[in-house]
Structure formats: structure tokens, C-alpha cells
Nucleic acid binder design. Structure first.
Lengths: 187, 187
DNA sequence: CCAAAAATGTAGCGATTGCTACGTGCGCTT
DNA sequence: AAGCGCACGTAGCAATCGCTACATTTTTGG
């Protein structure tokens, strides 16, 4: 028998992971239809056919990325025991974030933030969705007996995002020194 | 006398402010040569003539923007008296930053961060230059008698950047709640 | 089994991209 | 005055952009 071509009909759902792979690797700004299509094994013609327009495609892609991000957080939740202090929780997140494997996602994140700041059509809901996801995750995973879980989660969220940004610029040591000085992590 | 045409020969220095105006208004991603040229009252031809290539133009533009940012910080330095506590200093900066007039610059900032994270040719030095500028400014303006000015400045830098990002997404209240819970600002 | 509908390939359109080839006027030196 | 080089305008090129018209195949429903 000759090698079977992929028969399962392509759909938004089957395309989105491939498209996101290309965007993670190449960036959102350089994502034009033809390269995207090639990465997904199709043609620009079919991308428009399935998504209607590039704008809708990007919007779908961003909300898909938000879902992937949320799923990643859930995976961390059940992975290991809950940290006993805020400092431990913060350290764990930052450590996970320092993983080079999460760098493409960080790069994508800044493009999303930039788009959201300029109110590009699908960007703000995606960005807000992701930080909300992180916020409720933090709130649920605050150390037991924390005096102010809601406020503490918001504090951690803020310093996490700040550290994220500084580390994207190669300023991770600066952020770390600040967190140490603030007693937010321990040496 | 008939209306005088502009005679002073155009140069990088005279073009950069106009180019930056366009970039602040329209964004770095949409900055192609012809619109940029129109905003500066020239042609794409002359932009290439003066800057050599678009890449060099963008690099020059970013370092120019970094200079403008630094000058803005210096202006704040001499503007009023030094805050007496970290909380006051932080509050003052965040207040200045909440000014809608600084929003275009924030929008540009995320595009610079995104480019730096992806290591696009002129972006990382510009981004690092700006956060360094802010860092030394903070260090110089820490309240007198602060127990750890260096660490405190780095702590403030981190929470400032985090707050900046959250506020760009419309999450300023979340950041504020976090800073309150952390005792970094006062109600 | 046959027709309607859904899915896909091919080709191309008009616009925009960064950049260049070429010509021209203008001021400066010798 | 003759030459020369800088500063600029005009025109255009090859590549790419998002998208569409049209033809064709594949799937599905009665």
C-alpha cells in the first residue's frame, strides 16, 4: 500500500497548535499567512477559508494560547506540594519561569502585552485572561494560614510580572536583588 | 515677501524627533519607510540616504528615544523635593506614570521590550539603557537615611515595572491592591 | 446512485514592503 | 568658469502582503 496522506480533515482545532508553534518560534509580528500556512501544512487560501480573515485567525490563536497557558498552570498545581511561605511560592514560580523552555512563551507574551496596550483587536482579552488565570492560581495556592491571601496574591502577581520583564532584558540579577532586599525571597 | 521654504538641510538629528512622534502615535510595528517619511516631511529615499537602512534607522530611533526618556527623568529630579519614604517615592512615580500623556511612551515601551526579548538588532541596548537610567535615578532619589538604597531601588524598579505592565492591561487596581498589601504604598 | 455541499488546489490581483538606479540642481573650491 | 560632490526628486524593481475568483475534488444526504 502506498503511504497514506493525512486524511483527517483539517479544522481550526487541528490547525491552532501548529500555528502556535510557528508563532512561538518566529514571533507574532512576522506571522504572515503564507509562512503560517506552511508551518501548518496548508495554504494561505485554507487559513482564510477556516478562520475568515487574518484578524480572526490571530484572535483565535491568542485565545488558544491563553488556554494553553492556563493548562500549564493547572499542571503545576497538581505537580507538587503547596509551598509553606510566600517566599517559597514566589521562588518556585520564578524558577519555573527561568526555564529556557518557557522563553518563547515569554517572548510571545510581550507581543501580546504590546498589542493589548495599543488595543489591537484580540489582544486585550487574551492578555487579561492570562493574568487573571495567574492571579486566581496564585490566590488558590497561597500558603495555608496566610493573613491576606487576596492581597498577597496581587502583590506576588505584580512582582512576578516585574521580574519577568527585567529578566527578559537580562536584568534577572537586578530583580533578584530587589526581591531579596524586599524580603520577598530568601537567599 | 513670499513664504520661505524650509532651507536648513535635513539631518538625522532634525529627523529623529519627527520620526519618534510618528512612532509614538502609530507604533513601531507599523513603522514602514513611506509613512515615516511622510511624517517627517521627506521621502523614503532620503531616510535611507541619511540612515543607511531601515534597521539602522530604527536603532538610531531607539537610542534617541532612550535619550528622551533619560531627559524626562532628569526633569522630574529637579522638579520637586525628595520624598521622605520609599512609599512616597513609589507613589510619586506611579502617579506620574498614570498620566495619560505618558501612555504612548508605555505602548512604545512594550514593543521595545518585545524586540529586546527576541534580540532584534537595536532593541536590547535601548531597553537596557532605559531601565538602567531608571535604576540609577531611583538610587539617587532614595529617601535620605534609607537602610539599603541599592536594594531598595531594585525592589522599587521591579514593582514599578510590574505595575506598569498590569496598568497597561487595565489591571491598575490589581497592582495597587498588591502594593498596598505589601506595604509598599499607603492608602 | 446522484446531486448538493463542503473542502481544497491554482492563479492571480492590487497594495505595500525596503531599497536602488538615475538624473539634476546647487554650492563650493581652484 | 570649470569641475566636483552633496542633497534631493522621480521612477521603478523584486518580493511579499491579505485576500479572492475559479476550478476541482471529496464528502455527504436523500
Amino acid at each position: 500500500m502506498r503511504p497514506r496522506a493525512k486524511k483527517p480533515p483539517m479544522s481550526k482545532e487541528s490547525l491552532l497548535p501548529l500555528l502556535m508553534g510557528h508563532v512561538l518560534a518566529e514571533g507574532l509580528g512576522q506571522a504572515s499567512l503564507r509562512p503560517l500556512a506552511k508551518a501548518a501544512g496548508t495554504s494561505d487560501r485554507m487559513l482564510i477559508y477556516h478562520f475568515g480573515s487574518k484578524e480572526k485567525l490571530i484572535a483565535d490563536l491568542l485565545s488558544f494560547a491563553a488556554g494553553v497557558y492556563a493548562a500549564g498552570l493547572e499542571a503545576v498545581i497538581t505537580a507538587d506540594a503547596r509551598p509553606a511561605t510566600r517566599a517559597e511560592l514566589l521562588a518556585r514560580i520564578l524558577e519555573q519561569n527561568a526555564d529556557p523552555a518557557s522563553q518563547p512563551f515569554k517572548q510571545l507574551w510581550w507581543e501580546i502585552v504590546g498589542g493589548a496596550a495599543r488595543d489591537v483587536p484580540g489582544f486585550r482579552p487574551a492578555a487579561r485572561g492570562m493574568v487573571n488565570e495567574l492571579l486566581v492560581w496564585l490566590e488558590r495556592n497561597m500558603p495555608p494560614g496566610d493573613p491576606d491571601p487576596a492581597g498577597g496574591a496581587r502583590l506576588l502577581l505584580t512582582v512576578i510580572e516585574g521580574t519577568l520583564m527585567l529578566s527578559s532584558l537580562g536584568h534577572e540579577d537586578t530583580a533578584r536583588a530587589g526581591l531579596l532586599a524586599g524580603g520577598l525571597i530568601e537567599a
